[in-house]
Amino acid sequence: MLTPEKTFPQEDPVVRNARREAIVSVLIWFLAMAYTVGYCWLFAYGRDPATMRFYAGIPDWVLWGIIAPWLVCLVVSWWFAYVFMTDEPLGAEAPPAGDDEL
């Protein structure tokens, strides 16, 4: 007869959800990096100073390449925290690790 752990590895929902959230986190990180570095690479490097515009003292590439996505990320963080992530019990506390040997 097969043992339950071999046949039915019932993965804890916390593990499943945490994995899903981790994948989405990394995806958000990648998109933020691609946009920010990409935009700044195009508009901040090798730029003719005469074409530089300032908005309230902030260079245009900083505004659109960094501050704007930062604001978007703030909204995304709210969505991630209050809509996407799930609440679940973290389980019971085991006795301090290694105390059997101590």
Partner: peptide, 22 residues
């Protein structure tokens, strides 16, 4: 240096979203 520090926009998501729960 704003670009140097820009990844702080996603630090909370990566810092807590990837490993915290597990």
């Amino acid at each position: 240096v704003a670009l140097w520090i820009a990844s702080y926009m996603v630090v909370p998501i990566t810092g807590f979203g990837v490993l915290a729960k597990r």
